[in-house]
Nucleic acid binder design. Structure first.
Lengths: 309, 309
DNA sequence: TCATATAGTTGACTTTGACAACTAAATGGT
DNA sequence: ACCATTTAGTTGTCAAAGTCAACTATATGA
C-alpha cells in the first residue's frame, strides 16, 4: 500500500518530540549514584527477578562486552550477584542482592515520580485517559501480539460512541460505505440501550490489554415470532484480528441466547463481509435467504442467517 | 488530582517500548558517514535554514561545548558554514552549504524510509491512521499549545461517532451524567444526518493540527415557528479549551443562521455548563426561561436561550 | 557604569558504544 | 561419537558522546 508522506512527517515529528520527553525523564535519574545505563540494568533485573547478562543486554540493545563490564561493576558495588550456574554452564544467572532490591525500589520510585510529575500531573482526568490510551494504542499497533487474556464485559459509558466511530470509519475504508452506515448504527446502538430489559438483551465488549478489541449484542428480534433473538453488530477491531475474538463473541452471544430461553437466533449481514460469514457458519448458523439492496452508497447482497437452538 | 498507579505503569512501559523504537530507527543511520549526533545537527539546521549553535544545542539537549566542537568538524567537512555576525556579535548564525543541503536531503530520505519501513509499512490503512492520530494526540497533550490555524469544516465519516464517544465520556467524567446522555446524543446526531437539506442545517468540526477540537450544529427548530433555528451540541475538547474555539463555533453557527434566512436561534443547555453559558451570553443570546428536570441520572436546571437575528 | 547574562571556545575527564578476538560450553547434523 | 557451528561471557582497543569548569567577548538592564 502506498505510504502517505504526511504520515511519515507526523511520525518523524513525534519521534523528535518523544526523544526529548524521554531525555527529560532520564535527566531526573542523574542525581542517583548510578549512571543511566547501570540504572537501566538494575531496573531490568529487578523487574525480572533473575536473568542472564545476555538476555538483559538484548532487551536494552547493549553490547555484550559493555554489559559484562557493567555487571562486574555492579557486583563490586554489591547491587547484584551471580547465582550458581545450573543447567547451561555457559550462562550465569544474576539476581539483585537485598541491597540491590532497595536500590531498585528507590530508582523505581524516582522514575514513577518523574513520569507522574512531568507527564500526568499537568493533565486533567480526561487528558490522562487520552494519554494512556494513546500510548497503549501505539504499543498495540507496533508490537507483536502478546497473550493477554481476552475479557468479555458490559460496555462502559462512551464505548457506544466509540463503536459507532470505529465501525463507521472501518466500513468506509474497507468497503467504501458512506455516512449512512454510521448514522444507521448510531440509531441501532441507541435503540439497544433504550430497549426494555425483557425479553433479555445483552451487549459485550471484548477487551484486550485495556483496549476495545471487539463487540456484539443480542436483542429480541423485531417482527419475528416470540423467542427469537437477533445477533447484531459483530465487530472486531482490525488491530486485533486473527485471534478468534469474533468467534468468542458469537459463541458468548449464542450461549446467552440459549440460557435466556430463546429458541432461535437470527442475524443480517452482507456477503462482502467474508470473515464474519465464516464465523457464523462455524457457530452453526445457516443461510436462509439473500436479498440484493442498495445501501450505504453501495450495491450489497444482504444475507439472512439463522440458528435454531 | 490523585495519580493512578496503573497510569504511571502504562506510561513507563510505553517509555521503555518507545526507547527501543527510537533506537531501532536510529540504527538505520549508522551506515552514513556522519555520526548520529552530527546527523541530528545537520537535520535540525536543514529544517530551520539558519540558526545559531546554541539554539540548536538547546533543542537537541546538548552541551554547548560539545556542539562547538561538532560544528567545527562539520565546517571542516564542508557541510555547514557560519554567516557574518550581524546584530548580536556574540552569536554566529550558521547555515548548510550547498553540499550540506545534499547531505540533508539524503539523511532525510534515509530517515523517512526507516520510519516508513519499520512503522508504517506493516500496518493497514486503519492502523496507520490510528498510529498517526495517537502520536498527534500525545504531542497535543504533552506540548504547549502552538498557534496552528483553526479550521472549521464539515464532518467526515466516523466523526459523528467520535463526537458521541467524546461527549458521552466527557460529561460522565465532569458532570457525572450516565449513559442516557450518550444514547440521547447518538439519536440527536443521527437525526441531524437524516434531516432534510431544507430548511438549511449545518454541522461544523473545529479542526486543529489534524485533531477534532470541537463541534456544533444548526438545525431547524422542531415545534417552533418557521424561521427558527436551533443551535445544538456545542462541544470543545478539553485538550483545546481556552483558545476561543467555542466562540468561533457559535459565531459561525449564528452567521450561518443569519445567512440562511433564519430570524431566530434558540438553544437548550444546562446551568452547570458554565463556560458554554458565557459563550452564549457573549454571542448575544438571552436567557428565556429555566426548568428543573431529572436527566442523565442528575438533577439539572435546563436553560432556554434565544437570539433574535 | 557595573554586575550579570549569554554565545561561543577550550581543556580535562568519564561514560557509552562499537568491534574484534578469545574461552568454555552447548547444539545439531551426519 | 565427531565436528562444525552457535551461544554466554570476557577482555582489549578505540572512537564518540556527554559532563564540568574555566575563559573571552559581547550584550543587557538596573
Amino acid at each position: 500500500m502506498p505510504i502517505n508522506a504526511a504520515d511519515i512527517a507526523q511520525i518523524r515529528a513525534f519521534n523528535r518530540f518523544y526523544t526529548k520527553v524521554i531525555g527529560l525523564l532520564e535527566d531526573g535519574m542523574h542525581n542517583s549514584p548510578y549512571t543511566l545505563t547501570e540504572a537501566r540494568i538494575i531496573y531490568e533485573l529487578g523487574r525480572r527477578g533473575r536473568a542472564t547478562a545476555s538476555s538483559i543486554a538484548e532487551t536494552l540493545d547493549m553490547d555484550r562486552g559493555q554489559m559484562s563490564r557493567l555487571v562486574l561493576r555492579l557486583i563490586d558495588q554489591g547491587v547484584l550477584a551471580t547465582l550458581p550456574r545450573i543447567g547451561d554452564r555457559r550462562a550465569a544467572p544474576m539476581a539483585l542482592t537485598p541491597h540491590g532490591d532497595k536500590v531498585f525500589a528507590h530508582l523505581n520510585a524516582m522514575s514513577d515520580a518523574a513520569a507522574a510529575d512531568a507527564l500526568l500531573e499537568p493533565l486533567d482526568e480526561f487528558g490522562r485517559r487520552d494519554l494512556v490510551s494513546a500510548m497503549r494504542r501505539i504499543e498495540t499497533l507496533l508490537s507483536e501480539p502478546d497473550d493477554e487474556p481476552l475479557v468479555l464485559r458490559p460496555h462502559r459509558i462512551g464505548e457506544l460512541g466509540w463503536l459507532i466511530h470505529r465501525q463507521g470509519l472501518l466500513y468506509h475504508l474497507e468497503q467504501g460505505w458512506n455516512g449512512e452506515f454510521e448514522t444507521l448504527i448510531a440509531r441501532i446502538y441507541a435503540d439497544f440501550e433504550t430497549a426494555p430489559a425483557n425479553p433479555p438483551k445483552s451487549l459485550w465488549i471484548a477487551e484486550l490489554g485495556g483496549e476495545v478489541a471487539g463487540s456484539i449484542f443480542i436483542i429480541p428480534a423485531a417482527d419475528e415470532a416470540p423467542g427469537t433473538a437477533q445477533l447484531r453488530m459483530l465487530y472486531v477491531d482490525p488491530a486485533f484480528r486473527g485471534r478468534g475474538i469474533g468467534k468468542r463473541l458469537v459463541d458468548e452471544a449464542v450461549r446467552f441466547s440459549r440460557a435466556s430461553g430463546y429458541s432461535k437466533v437470527i442475524l443480517w449481514t452482507q456477503d462482502c463481509l467474508v470473515s464474519a460469514r465464516r464465523i457464523y457458519q462455524a457457530a452453526g448458523f445457516t443461510l436462509e435467504r439473500e436479498e440484493r439492496h442498495q445501501s450505504f452508497g453501495a450495491d450489497l447482497n444482504g444475507q439472512y442467517w439463522a440458528l435454531t437452538l
